[in-house]
Amino acid sequence: MTEGFKWLIMLGGFMFITNYAEGVALRSADKSKQYLAFGLYILAEAFIFIPLIYIAAFHLDSGPEILQQAAIVTLALFSGLTAVVFVTKKDFSFLKTGLTIGFFIAIGLIVAGTLFGFNLGLWFSVGMCLLAGGSILYQTSNLMNKYATDEYIPASLGLFASLMLLFWYVL
Rank of each mutant, 00 (worst) to 15 (best):
D30S: 00
L36Y: 14
G39Q: 08
S32E: 15
S32W: 13
T74S: 01
K31Y: 09
Y54K: 09
I136H: 04
K89L: 04
T149G: 11
P51A: 07
G80H: 12
A132N: 06
K31T: 07
P64S: 07
L143Q: 03
A25I: 09
L163H: 02
K90C: 03
M1K: 13
Q68W: 08
S156A: 14
N142D: 07
I42L: 15
G102T: 03
Y20G: 03
M128V: 15
G80C: 12
L163T: 00
I53E: 06
D30L: 03
I136L: 09
L52D: 01
N119D: 02
A37Q: 02
L8N: 05
T100H: 08
E22T: 09
G127L: 03
I17W: 10
L157G: 00
A44H: 03
A70W: 02
E45V: 15
K31P: 01
E3H: 15
D91G: 07
P51L: 02
L81A: 03
L159N: 11
A44L: 00
T18S: 09
A56Y: 12
V73K: 07
K89Y: 02
L131N: 04
M164D: 04
F124A: 05
I53K: 08
S28P: 11
N19W: 13
G39W: 07
G134F: 05
S93D: 04
I55V: 14
L77S: 02
K6R: 10
G133L: 05
A56M: 13
M144F: 13
L120G: 14
P154L: 07
N145Q: 01
A132L: 10
C129V: 05
F86K: 04
L52N: 07
G108M: 12
F103D: 12
I9Y: 08
Y20C: 06
K89D: 00
W7S: 01
I50V: 11
L130H: 13
L166P: 01
S135W: 08
P51K: 02
Q139R: 03
S79R: 12
L60M: 11
Y35R: 01
N142H: 01
Y147Q: 10
N19I: 10
I66G: 00
A21Q: 03
A106K: 04
Y41L: 03
N142A: 01
E65M: 13
S141C: 12
L11E: 13
L36F: 13
Y20S: 05
Q34M: 06
G4T: 14
G23C: 04
N119F: 03
S135Y: 07
E45L: 15
T88G: 12
A29M: 09
S28R: 11
T2G: 14
Y147T: 07
Y35W: 02
V84S: 08
L95G: 00
I107V: 10
S32V: 14
Q68A: 09
Q34G: 00
F167H: 08
A25R: 03
M15T: 12
Y35D: 05
F5H: 03
D61H: 11
A21S: 15
G102D: 04
M1C: 13
A161F: 12
A57D: 12
W123D: 06
F124T: 06
K6A: 06
T97G: 04
G23P: 00
G4E: 13
A148F: 01
P154W: 01
F94L: 06
L143H: 05
L157N: 02
G134N: 10
N145D: 04
E45S: 13
L159V: 12
F47R: 07
G23S: 02
L166H: 07
